[in-house]
């Protein structure tokens, strides 16, 4: 039932009882369904979207393009595993096109990110090259627009 997944993807705060009402189902059935999704890895976790720019936390994020030499038999997976095990790596994708892996990372300072690239990423044997792009501003993430106050401009008309 993709509807439940879509609703939860948009708002993980919805309770099973609320989801049941919205979809015309029994709360017990929804609970069971969510348990199943969690057990078989369809639902992999719940997080909160935070606009850190509104806090005093100092951080930088960067997107790193990585070219690698695939390993015999194991393709990109082994290298990917080496990279995603670093806790500073937020996201990792295998890409089509001009480079192989796209690494999204977060660090306290630019220096820290630079250190990660130079000392950890570039030193992996299969990594051929890297190109680091620092994020200047986050406009939208996970479907949510950041930094813009939503104003209901609809006129009361009818």
């Amino acid at each position: 039932m993709n509807t439940i997944l879509k609703l939860l993807e948009d708002n993980a705060n919805l309770t099973p009882a609320q989801l049941a009402v919205m979809c015309g189902k029994e709360t017990g059935d929804i609970k069971k369904l969510i348990k199943e999704y969690e057990a078989n890895g369809v639902i992999v976790g719940y997080k909160t979207l935070v606009d850190w720019d509104k806090t005093d936390r100092e951080y930088v994020s960067a997107l790193i393009e990585v070219k690698i030499t695939p390993q015999r038999d194991r393709g990109f997976d082994r290298v990917a595993e080496k990279i995603y095990n670093y806790p500073e790596v937020q996201s990792l994708y295998l890409m089509s096109g001009g480079y192989d892996l796209c690494v999204l990372i977060e660090g306290k300072t630019m220096k820290e990110v630079a250190y990660f690239v130079a000392q950890k990423l570039a030193t992996i044997e299969e990594v051929v090259s890297t190109a680091t792009h620092f994020v200047l501003r986050k406009y939208k993430d996970k479907g949510v627009v950041y930094g813009v106050e939503e104003i209901d401009e609809r006129g009361n008309c009818n």
Partner: peptide, 17 residues
């Protein structure tokens, strides 16, 4: 609706669109 004009502190379920 005239009563609502300019009221920013109000949460409404009034809009017909």
């Amino acid at each position: 609706f005239d009563l609502l004009d300019g009221r920013k502190d109000v949460i409404g379920l009034t809009v017909g669109q």
